[in-house]
Design a protein around this nucleic acid. Sequence first.
DNA 1: CGGGCTGACATTTTT
DNA 2: TGTCAGCCCG
Length: 746
Amino acid sequence: MATDLLANLNPQQQRAVTTVMGPVLVLAGPGSGKTRVLTHRIAYLISEAGIDPLQILAVTFTNKAAREMRERLVLLLGETIATDLTVGTFHAICARWLRRDIIHLGRERDFVIYDSDDQERLLKRVLRELNLNEKQHPPRAILGAISQAKNELVGPEEFARQTRSYFDEIVARCYARYQSLLRESNALDFDDLLGETVRLFREHPAVLAHYQQRYRFLLVDEYQDTNHVQYLLVRALAERDRNLFVVGDEAQSIYAWRGADIRNILQFERDYPDATVIMLEQNYRSTQAILDAAQALINASPQRKYAKRLWTTNGKGDQVVLYEALNDEDEAQFVVGEILRLIAEGAARPGDCAIMYRTNAQSRLVEEALVQAHLPYQVVGGVRFYERKEVKDVLAYLRLAANPYDSVSLQRVINWPGRGIGDRTVNELIVWARQLGVPLYQALSELAGETADHPFAARPRSALLEFYALIAEFNRLRAVMALGDLIDYILARVEAHAALKREYDAEEADDRWRNVQELRNAALSYANLPVEHQLAAFLEDVALVADVDSLDRNNDVVTCITLHQAKGLEFPYVFLLGIEEGLLPHSRSQTDRDALEEERRLLYVGMTRAQRRLYLCHAAQRALFGRVTSSARSRFLADIPPTLFKLVRRRGYRAVPAPQTPMFSNRAFNQTPPAPRRDSGRSAPLPAPPKAAFFPGQRVYHATFGEGIVVSSRLIEGDEEVTVRFSDRERRLLASFARLESLTDG
DNA sequence: CGGGCTGACATTTTT
DNA sequence: TGTCAGCCCG
């Protein structure tokens, strides 16, 4: 057996597989057989080291990775043993544990899980409640800040204590209300799944001890993409036995913008001084020509701790092609023409080719060219199945059946299909529920009682009561009806099909109804569970392990995909598009050194997807938001020696010079705010002002921004938001926070 | 209350 | 260029 498991593994891989005890850090270059190492190690632990599969926990970053790992393990170990292993994403594993133990945190185990769309809806409600404008306070930015706080395990109270800006102050208020609404809704967002688990472990050592005892061998894939909470989680679990095996590659870290903390991998040796560190440098995927170019790119990065020297026995191979296109259309034409040629020569099939780009918007021209050429293709990404509006609407009814306190779902379908409950009535309901201090569903229940003390006119009231009866009915039926029957019943009861036909033209209504039917079909696989568990199991899978739209590699079609999504994949022929300033690096990343380096790694990830031949393309002109703009080739191309390229260009190509002032400079993001200028001595800061202390035209002083003139002022949530024109620009400030001083007499 | 129109606005994405 | 939110009118 041992020979089987270790056969065809190189010495480093063997060492990674057979180092059973203690912390192990594997730095795995692209194409170095990382997944192989993970699966063979698990097999080795069980069949050679005699470890009980129940004691092994393997964490992956995506469901797809988890599924693939499990499939390979079934092949290696057989179905029976593989079933005993715990393989999953951080989120799925935490959700499972919380279902069991969240009661210790004083919460219910039948919580729902809010996805980002749910989060956004909830936050918009918060903004409205706090009388904040969505335009001025973008929900996604606020959610980003909340998510960041949660990743650092900073709760609403602590956050409020640490605010340093107007924006922070706004976030603090939103965060507090957002969190209490989550709780009221018996809901957890994705970040809470991780954060609450860490909290559970911290506050209940006995619970932690239980999981430490249960899982004595931990494996974590894509360790460079873990965030701080995930780091804490892993550290807590591994604390007792220290059998922690992590695999990652700093050079492929491309999710820092989402909270991934590259320090987790860089500091592994500090956290575990006795760690075995193994580098996997032999590449089994690409030609040496491709590796040389990729290496040159990544070696030019100033931020490298574990510099790897990738090598391969695959041979030199074709030179990397650098195509300089006249414009984006020419670029798409070239790529498609090249694919056609490769196919005609018998060198490739459509499925061997992948077209990769930085932004989804770039896929359009490529798709048009592929259609014209009659080449079959698939675009990875776009709106996923369970995120489609019609699917989420039906799901909202199911979630309400499981948990009527889910206020996001309630608000979502309170007027879908239309039943005469307009925005006005919904807002009244929200305000009233808040006055009562109860969830929306309970407010409806109060309304159904004898209370005369409510703000609703007769017609909206009866519409609300009807809706309440509907949800109460679904809630009763949940426990006695099989899932499929329940869905059918709900669809019929709310006349969903008719609603879709009313709202969309025939073709689109058909499409959407088909999606609803597909959801209905998905319920079939839960039919073998006990009736009372079917709904909960279904909702859990939908929230966490839904992956219906995933890439299908069995189709022989060209794959169009973003660079981010391409991680972990490989194709014989890879075309990278738009290697230009503004696109790669993206314009949003050009002001920040770390973001810029992440863009470099993104390109590195793309390049290392190629097995046989790599094409890098950039265009001199590109349509951007409907406007033709010229673009300069990416600065990253200058880091690859020109001798490694085979240059191809269309006649008439003229290079666009790089921008005169580099868009990135060390100084650009290091500006200090203007020093306060004062002409007279100033009095002690004023305490938080009473209502409307500021008025337009008033001269004020701020400690950081100096003197300014009040443009406008309005009251929000017991505070005053003052817009002040300072010397550089207008700023919105909160009176209680900003400590504005009045310089106007009187 | 609901349907249709106009104007601002633009990464990357998993769970 | 395309989407989404807000506004106006029936």
